[in-house]
Nucleic acid binder design. Structure first.
Length: 831
RNA sequence: GCGGGAGUGGCGGAAUUGGCAGACGCGCUGGACUUAGGAUCCAGUGGGGCAACUCGUAGGGGUUCAACUCCCCUCUUCCGCACCA
């Protein structure tokens, strides 16, 4: 094929996209004996059109997928749509278009956009989570979890976003605000469906240590979110009432310093102990308020089981019902919150831990009981470990040892037990919205909650509903949906109207890709061959905003799927790359800031290859990328230069291959060396850290060298065409359309570039004949000389000392020491 | 407050193990070609100095023949968590 004189991406890019599509170039199966590689980018929500964040995410993934393909892997690289969610419903309310129509139209449009980027997806595996063929299995997993006790319904205080008119999971509340709309979230008591992710808390935590291919930061965030802590539960009997208050503490070494008890406002005993219910209601209203500690004396006292002293019982707004036992022992001397509370309510402070001498808190008075706040010896709580004082038989022990001893004592006396607590709570998945997976249960007057029979799945989301925007989910008034019969007794029953959190949909989509939307089929206890072949995902790429949310849920689901016997994989994602944001004018691109760059515009003006190249070149993938219009032009200029180089030499005869030993001019040798060095550099930059920016820089260097190379005779052309072919092959993952076109122009019918092998370098050809030797005097650079490569230390030393300029700078001085770094530098120490 | 990053020319960013700081690109300067240049090509480009030199990787100290890199302190900044007992 003959190349056009000018680089014309608008013409050639669609042509190659069609070629790949017509030839199913990127469709994959499990057959063959190649090693598999599963490359996955987080699938998008079909919001309407793609933005530069998508372009960056998918460009990164595409480089990896195409590179691995050329390296001989059987690559699975799928794409799909996280297509349930509120924007579709909001569009329905606002513009009267059905969520389904809105969603599918968006998918259609965004798909054409992705195709215009030349991404190497196997579209035959495309999934959309709003498709009944997909959410049917969402429902199936739910029923299985219900059977195993992993899904359950309970009434509890939940996070309610009044703007979204739905509850939110804990992971979806960011600084007391809704993750989606920033509305302040309030607590509301509701019946909700939960998934028992806490059953897997310990395994999810332990598994963190296996996530060696994840950014440290994300692993730490996961660990903190799970929040495991070791402690003890202790019963404090209530004086004069036949009740005990069970508290949880991680500091049993401070038990002797517990001078009061605090109950969480929703704690069942609070209602029982407090006489003034109005006051209790008042404090309940303050529950969860972070800026103020408010307490209410119950009028009752507990007996501290260690000191046998009477201590007052309070209801305190800062004590969480959801963590531990919903009740705490307060040790104001050694806990800042308790200290603040004690000061506010004039409660006694008892010092029971003394800092080790010379430590920060040394000098605090090992207090007697201090009844009045003004008499406090402490300005703040001493929260560190130390030596026990005023602690009966445990006085004189160190905190760590005392913890163990006291726990043993408590267990022996039957006062309580050692426990492990987690911050992680069960995942609330009920959403009071329409556009989501219906939760497949019915409420029967006789049988109560009954799951839908597997054979009756999927429970289809009805299409003929009205979107008024008031009064919650349209399912609440969809008679044909609501009315059903009980699967058990056939009597009248009502369907669940809550739908699932969309994070449920995305918790197993990577599993669905392994089969494709039309082949989804699972049976409990039957291992799925496709999962055995493809899972886990070898490389996952996406935004860091899912560090806890989606990634934790997916790790949980993968284990549930494993325990259903479908696979034996524990961790879904071996390597995780969290790509940085796309920044313009110092801020994340957003409509409200008016600093967005439209991918369509870029593709039309410069082409997909240029757009991809720039986003890959401007920064390493994990860092934020500062957008630069000029930088884009630079990328285009580079590709044009490559084009011109190829065009200029494309009709030259192809010479014989040169053996390394052939005698060639130093220019030819130089170009061949640079080419081999570039192959090595580009390969290692991709393999080592996915640093495409430096890989591309290396290709630019090679291009510069090629530009200044002037072939005259045959073997010059042979060397040049080797450089050019290598260049085109290495460009293929980054700028696939250009690479295809140039390959077609220079390769003389050797197939398409996407099916070529990645080039290999010859270590012998990489070697330099000569090296520049840096000469330092007392660590400062004083000159450079060129010497033959591989000289022994002694010769390098001689060469350096023999250099005229060096002699000048050390004249008249005593040489104390000479340090030689082989092949790099000589440092002469004089004095 | 706790935890984790980051700080390098005018800008985006390079610098495998401590071994030439500033690769590559953008921008800028000069030149060539041109009716023209916001196209293309060539040359130059950290600061200061005519120069030899000298100063330079947030700031201060230290280790070393040698420090962007290792250690200590300080500052700035971004991100995450934040009553989890």
């Amino acid at each position: 094929m003959k190349l056009d004189e000018r680089y014309n991406p608008r013409e050639l890019e669609p042509r190659w996209q069609k070629y790949w599509e017509d030839h199913n170039t990127f469709n994959t199966g499990t057959e063959g004996d190649k090693e598999k590689f599963y490359c996955l980018e987080m699938f998008p929500y079909p919001s309407g059109r793609i933005h530069m964040g998508h372009v960056r995410n998918y460009a990164i993934g595409d480089v990896i997928a195409r590179y691995k393909r050329m390296k001989g892997f059987n690559v699975l690289h799928p794409m799909g749509w996280d297509s349930f969610g509120m924007p579709a419903e909001n569009a329905a309310i606002k513009h009267g278009v059905h969520p389904s129509k809105w969603t599918y139209e968006n998918i259609e449009y965004m798909k054409t956009q992705l195709k215009r980027l030349g991404l190497s997806y196997d579209w035959s595996r495309e999934i959309a989570t709003c498709n009944p063929s997909y959410y049917r299995w969402n429902q199936w997993f739910f029923i299985k979890m219900l059977e195993k006790g992993l899904a359950y319904r309970k009434s509890s205080y939940v996070n309610w976003c009044s703007s979204c008119e739905t509850v939110l999971a804990n992971e979806q509340v960011i600084n007391t605000q809704c993750w989606r709309c920033d509305n302040v979230v309030v607590q509301k008591e509701l019946f909700q469906w939960f998934l028992k992710i806490t059953d897997y808390a310990d395994e999810l935590l332990k598994g963190c240590d296996d996530l060696t291919g994840w950014p440290e930061k994300v692993v730490v965030m996961q660990k903190n979110w799970i929040g495991k802590s070791h402690g003890v539960e202790v019963d404090f009997p209530v004086d004069g009432v036949a009740e005990k208050i069970r508290i949880f503490t991680t500091r049993p070494d401070t038990l002797f310093g517990a001078t009061f008890i605090c109950l969480s406002p929703p704690h069942p005993l609070a209602k029982q102990l407090v006489a003034d219910q109005a006051a209790l209601e008042k404090i309940t209203a303050q529950y969860g308020k972070v800026d103020e500690k408010i307490g209410l004396f119950t009028g009752h006292y507990c007996i501290n089981p260690m000191t046998r002293k009477k201590i007052p019982v309070y209801v305190a707004n800062f004590v969480l019902m959801e963590y531990g036992t919903g009740a705490i022992m307060s040790v104001p001397a050694h806990d800042q919150r308790d200290f603040d509370f004690a000061k506010e309510y004039g409660l006694p402070v008892m010092v029971v831990i003394q800092p080790a001498e010379n430590s920060a808190g040394a000098g605090i008075v090992p207090g007697q009981e201090c009844g009045q706040p003004q008499g406090l010896p402490l300005q703040e709580a001493y929260v560190e470990a130390g030596l026990l004082v005023n602690s009966g038989e445990f006085t004189g022990m160190q905190s760590e040892a005392a913890k163990e001893e006291i726990i043993t004592y408590i267990e022996k006396k039957g006062l309580g037990k050692k426990v492990v607590n987690y911050k992680l709570r069960d995942w609330g998945i009920s959403r009071q919205r329409y556009w989501g997976t219906p939760i497949p249960v019915v409420y029967c007057e006789k049988c109560g909650i009954v799951p839908v029979r597997e054979a009756d799945l999927p429970v289809i989301l009805p299409e003929d509903v009205k979107f008024t925007g008031t009064g919650g989910s349209p399912l609440l008034v969809a008679e044909s949906f609501l009315k059903t019969s009980c699967p058990t007794c056939n009597g009248p029953a009502r369907r669940e109207t809550d739908t699932m959190d969309t994070f449920v949909d995305s918790s197993w989509y990577f599993i669905a890709y392994c089969l494709g939307l039309n082949n989804l089929k699972f049976e409990q206890g039957v291992a799925v061959p496709e999962l055995k072949y493809w899972m886990p995902v070898d490389q996952y790429i996406g935004g860091v905003e899912h560090a806890v949310l989606h990634l934790l849920y997916s790790r949980f689901y993968t284990r549930v799927v494993r325990d259903l016997g479908l696979t034996d994989v524990n961790e879904p994602f071996i390597n995780l790359l969290t790509q940085g944001m796309v920044i313009k004018d110092g801020a994340k691109m957003s409509k409200s800031k008016g600093n967005v760059v439209d991918p369509n515009y870029l593709i039309e003006k410069y082409g997909a290859d240029t757009s991809r190249l720039f986003t890959l070149f401007a920064a390493p993938p994990e860092k934020d990328l500062e957008w630069s219009d000029k930088g884009v032009e630079g990328a285009y200029r580079f590709l044009s230069r490559i084009w011109n180089l190829a065009f200029k030499y494309s009709d030259r005869p192809d010479g014989k291959a040169l053996a390394g030993s052939d005698e060639v001019s130093s220019e030819v040798r130089g170009l061949l060396r640079k080419t081999h060095q570039t192959i090595r550099k580009v390969t290692s930059d991709i393999e080592r850290e996915l640093h495409f920016n430096t890989a591309i820089a290396a290709l630019m260097e090679l291009a510069n060298e090629m530009s200044s190379f002037e072939p005259k005779e045959d073997r010059d052309y042979t060397a040049f065409s080797f450089a050019l072919e290598s260049m085109v092959l290495m460009l293929a993952p980054f700028t696939p359309h250009l690479a295809e076109e140039l390959w077609a122009g220079i390769s003389r019918g050797r197939g398409c570039v996407s099916e070529q092998a990645w080039p290999v370098w010859d270590e012998e050809m990489v070697r330099e004949d000569e090296v520049e030797l840096v000469i330092q005097v007392n660590g400062k650079m004083r000159g450079k000389i060129t010497v033959a490569a591989g000289l022994p230390e002694e010769s390098l030393k001689e060469a350096a000392l023999g250099d005229a300029k060096t002699a000048e700078s050390i004249a008249g001085k005593q040489i104390r020491k000479v340090i030689v770094v082989q092949g790099r530098l000589v440092n002469i120490v004089v004095g």
